[in-house]
Structure formats: C-alpha cells, structure tokens
C-alpha cells in the first residue's frame, strides 16, 4: 500500500499512524495537550531518550544491541558536573567533555566486541555496570549539585521560545537521518546488520565500522547526559536508569528490524514521539506512573504484533 513512497517515509507510516491515533485521543481527552507549552515540554522531556534512540538506531541497524547508554549518561553527567564546577563551565567545554566521555565508552564497546567476538548484548551489559559504578565512585554516591549557570544553558536555554534540548535533538535527528540514508557509513551499517558475513566478504572493515557505530552511539549518550545534568542542575550517578530500554523501544516502535539491516531515523523519531505523547497524555489525564509503564509495554507488544515478521523473528 505504501510501496510507492520513498523508503524512509514508507517505513515511518505505521509509527505515524500510531502517533496520530495517540495525538487525537489525547487532544480530545486532555484540552491542554495541544498547547505550545505542553508540546515544547513533551519534546524537551524526550530529548535525552531521543538522543539515545538515535544512537540505538545505528546500533540496531548494524545488528547489535547497546545496553550501556543509560549508564554512559550518568557517567557523563557526573564527570561533566565535576568538570564544570572545578575547571570550565563554558557550554562548549561541557559539550566536549560529555561527548568525549560517551565517545570513549562507545569506542571501548566497539573495540571489546571486535576483540572478544562476544555478542554486543553481553559486552554492553558489562560496560553498563562498569560505567554506572564509576559514576557512583566518582561522585561518592551522591549527586553533584550547584553547577555554574553557564553549564546549564544547554539544558535550560531557549531560542525563539523553543528549548535548547529540543533544538539539539532536532539537529541530531536531521544529521543522523542524513548519515544513515545518504552516506557510505550509513549504507555499510545497514549492510553489516543485514548480513555481516556478506559485508565482510565484500571488503567492508567490520571492526572499524563497529568502532564508528558504537562511538557515535556513545557520544550521543554522553550528550544526553549533559542535557540531563543541565536540566536537573546536578550530576546524578543514578541518572538514565532504563533509558537504553526506552531508546530501544522507540527504535522498535519505529519499525526497525531488531536483527539489523532495516532502520530509519525518521521512523525512530516518530516512534519516540509516540512514546513521549503516550507518557505525556497519560500524565495530563492524571494516570499513575505504574499504569504509564504498563501502557508503554502494551503499545510496544501491540505494535510488534501488528508487524509480525517485519521486525525480525527468532522462529
């Protein structure tokens, strides 16, 4: 039915239908839902998970899973908070440090996966624990509070009334969408996820590609940590718990193949919006958090059920 649309648009149709349905339901049931302030807040709250979801799109497209971004977020937030307090609180300095921390952990993930030949799931499960532990050790187990104002701009500033985290997310969406669809790196990522053996046989350097993919995902998680730190005015070692799962959920809601070879940033973004709208709408309807988690799970299962076979199968 949607075959004639360009590939990323066709892939985004189903999550778009889900998003539209959710928007209509909440617009009718919660009048405040469609206000600019609320939509700005929805996007701002989604920025951190959104950045993680963008990284997860590349990782899943390559046939891998990264469980470490939530912990990388926390590590990045703690280290950057300390850096801002004691060395340099300029926004550029904070971006470099936060992105650098994430990049370093991401490169470590990619290197370890290639070195050991172990599944990415296992290696990143390990780095999840290591990064989280280092975040707790570095902060002494308590959040780093009282950051200079300049370090908070990335999370609390605004341009033309739009919060900076939203603008950062949008820039990253456009750049990563372009990268996945229109560059050799993106095409190689999809080849690798589709059939790593074939990609290798055609001369694609998989260890180097793995480094680039996990490095990118790590850097985005580091940036998410900075935004989280700047929004909450603290370097919290417990930040980002389960965010990686929310990121993966957005990618899967977007219709990516969990086993690789098929993913689109536009679809992931649509999946992310669906997730954010669902949580925000339920908030506006004053539905308790426990039920929100339940609904997110149900929507994911329903979405997977409706696209049986498209998302990859173990059968």
């Amino acid at each position: 039915m949607f075959d004639k649309l360009p590939q990323p648009m066709a892939a985004a149709v189903q999550p778009l239908l889900l998003l539209t349905l959710l928007v209509v339901v909440f617009a009718l049931s919660a009048p405040a839902f469609l206000s600019f302030a609320n939509l700005n807040n929805v996007l701002t709250a989604s920025a951190t998970v959104g950045l993680i979801a963008l990284g997860a799109t590349f990782v899943i497209a390559s046939g891998n899973i990264d469980l470490s971004p939530g912990a990388v977020m926390a590590l990045s937030a703690v280290v950057t908070a300390n850096y801002a307090q004691h060395i340099d609180a300029s926004p550029v300095g904070c971006v470099v440090v936060a992105g650098g921390i994430g990049l370093a952990v991401g490169l470590l993930n990619g290197w370890l996966i290639s070195l050991t030949g172990a599944p990415s799931f296992i290696i990143t499960l390990g780095t999840l624990s290591v990064a989280r532990a280092i975040a707790y050790i570095a902060s002494g187990g308590v959040p780093v509070y009282g950051l200079p104002d300049s370090a908070l701009i990335v999370g609390q500033g605004a341009l033309f009334g739009i919060h900076l985290p939203v603008l950062i997310l949008m820039v990253c969406v456009v750049m990563s969408g372009f990268t996945l669809r229109f560059t050799r790196f993106g095409q190689h990522t999809l080849h690798m996820g589709d059939d790593a053996k074939a990609a290798q046989a055609l001369g694609i350097n998989l260890p180097r590609l793995r480094l680039q993919i996990f490095g990118l995902a790590g850097a985005l998680a580091g940036l998410a940590g900075l935004i989280f730190m700047a929004r909450t005015n603290s370097g919290d070692p417990s930040a980002g718990q389960s965010y990686e799962l929310l990121g993966i959920t957005a990618v899967i809601l977007g219709g990516a193949n969990l086993f690789g070879g098929k993913a689109s940033v536009l679809s992931t973004f649509t999946g992310l919006l669906a997730l954010a709208v669902l949580q925000n709408g339920l908030n506006l309807l004053a539905i308790e958090t426990f039920y929100q988690v339940l609904f997110v799970g149900l929507v994911l299962i329903l979405s997977a059920g409706l696209r049986r076979g498209e998302l990859g199968s173990w059968r």
């Binding site: 095409q187 999809l190 589709d194 074939a198 055609l202 694609i204 193949n257 070879g261 098929k262």
Partner: peptide
C-alpha cells in the same frame, strides 16, 4: 553474499560505493 534487505544498487556497489 547479498544483503537481502538492501536495494539492488546498494548490493551492486557494496564495499566500493
């Protein structure tokens, strides 16, 4: 050694885009 979810063009140029 084809990547079957990718397009014909992507496969023809795989590794030497």
């Amino acid at each position: 050694a084809l990547t079957r979810q990718q397009s014909v063009v992507a496969n023809l140029f795989m590794g030497r885009e």
